[in-house]
Amino acid sequence: MKIIKVNPSRCTGCRSCEIACSFENLGECNPSRARIHIISDRIRGINLPLVCQQCRDAPCKAACPTGALGEDPETHAVIVHENKCIGCRQCVLACPFGAIDVYQDMGHSFKCNLCHGTPQCVEACEEDALTFVEEVRENRDKNWHIAEILQKIMQAKDADSGPDFSGDTYSEWKKVV
C-alpha cells in the first residue's frame, strides 16, 4: 500500500498542496476546504502539513453510525460513501488529526481519498515535503540519513582511541537522536 509521507523539515509552507487539493476535489480554489492543511509557526517559520493518515483501525470508521466510511479496494484509502453519510459529524469528533470535515452545503463528510491513486497535493509539492511512497519505504530515508552520519563517525575512528565523538559529525548525530 502507498501512503502520503510527510517530511515537515522540507516544507516551505507555500500551501500549493492545499490549493491543488481543493481544485482537484471541488473544482474551485478554496484552501480552507482542502483535505490537507499546513499548520505554521509563523514567527519561526516552522511548517507542518497535516493530512489523513489513512489509519488501519480508523476511529472515523468506528464512529460512523451508518457505515458510510469504507475502504477503497485499490488504494486502501479510507473513503466516504456519500449516499450512506448523514452528515452527523461523529467522524469529525473521532478523528485525532482533524482530517475529516462536514460542511452543511455539501451534506456529507469529506476527507482525503488519495485522489484515487495520484494525490494532487503530492504532485504539487515541489519540495518533496510530501511524497507518495510504499509503506515499506517510509522509513528508509531516515535509515539512510542516520546511517550516513554514523558511518562518518565510524570512519573517523582512530585505531587506539575508538570512534570520534568530539567533532561536528557527533553534534549533528546528537541533533538527530
Partner: peptide, 13 residues
Amino acid sequence: HREGCFNCPIGCG
C-alpha cells in the same frame, strides 16, 4: 531554512 509565498513552487524567502 526556506519559506515560500502562497502557491509558489520556488520559495525564495
